[in-house]
């Protein structure tokens, strides 16, 4: 039997975080995450943004937190810090911010002076996240998603959760400089599958893969 060990940890190398979606070369390190580092001039592009901070918060559907966040279910809006607040469920929000800022986001949420119990869970590591930008995005999604993504049913600044290629996926319409763009995130272990399906479906639409930095965030 081994000696009882009480010594602290030995010095460790800086840990490297990996996305569930395989990176493509060349790669770079962003906030401790290994990311794809390339650009694409395709008119429709897919990027792995899994390193982005994703903070999940639960509270009552129409309580103090809901009022403080001022984002209703099925809506998405950016706050003063540039964090995208998505109304991802009834009494449930997913906040998406720059890589490495989950602690800050959670801290700000905790600091909100709301008169109800809220639950904050950092799901940065629990969700795979991609961005699909470009004209063919909705056409492409029509092969994997049954929901009507027409302008009148899902304009910019809205979100919903549905089945995408048979994976439960949060879909956020978050246009970039007037170009139609979607964020899609699902639980992490299905991320590689989901990204691969989008890539395959995108082949017919000339889908390009761009890196983390090139996708804007």
């Amino acid at each position: 039997m081994a000696e009882p060990t009480t010594a602290g940890p030995a010095p460790q190398p800086e840990p490297l975080a990996r996305s569930p979606i395989p990176t493509l070369t060349p790669t770079a390190i962003v906030a401790g995450w290994e990311v794809t580092d390339r650009s694409s001039d395709a008119s429709t592009r897919l990027a792995d943004l899994s390193p982005l901070a994703k903070v999940h918060v639960r509270a009552s559907e129409d309580g103090a937190l809901a009022a403080a966040l001022d984002v209703r279910f099925l809506k998405a809006a950016r706050d003063d810090y540039g964090v995208l607040i998505t109304g991802s469920g009834p009494g449930e929000w997913t906040l998406i911010g720059p890589a490495g800022t989950a602690g800050d986001i959670a801290g700000r949420l905790s600091a909100l002076d709301v008169d109800e119990r809220i639950t904050i869970v950092d799901l940065t590591h629990g969700r795979a996240l991609v961005r699909l930008t470009g004209d063919a995005g909705s056409t492409l999604l029509a092969t994997v998603c049954a929901v009507d993504l027409d302008e009148h049913t899902m304009p910019d600044g809205t979100c919903l959760r549905t089945s995408v290629a048979r994976v439960v996926t949060d879909l956020v319409r978050d246009d970039r400089d007037g170009v139609r763009s979607y964020l899609l995130h699902c639980e992490r272990s299905s991320g590689a599958y989901l990204a691969e399906q989008l890539r395959q479906v995108g082949e017919a639409h000339g889908l390009g893969v761009e890196g983390f930095a090139a996708a804007g965030r």
Binding site: E3, T5, P9, A10, V121, D122, H125, G126, E187, R188
Partner: peptide, 23 residues
């Protein structure tokens, strides 16, 4: 909140598991 895949889970088992993990 389901966190199944927010964590990578691994089981370190055996009489020497403590020796491996402690440092």
């Amino acid at each position: 909140t389901p966190v199944t895949t927010a964590y990578a889970s691994m089981n370190l088992a055996g009489p020497r598991s403590r020796d491996v993990l402690a440092p």
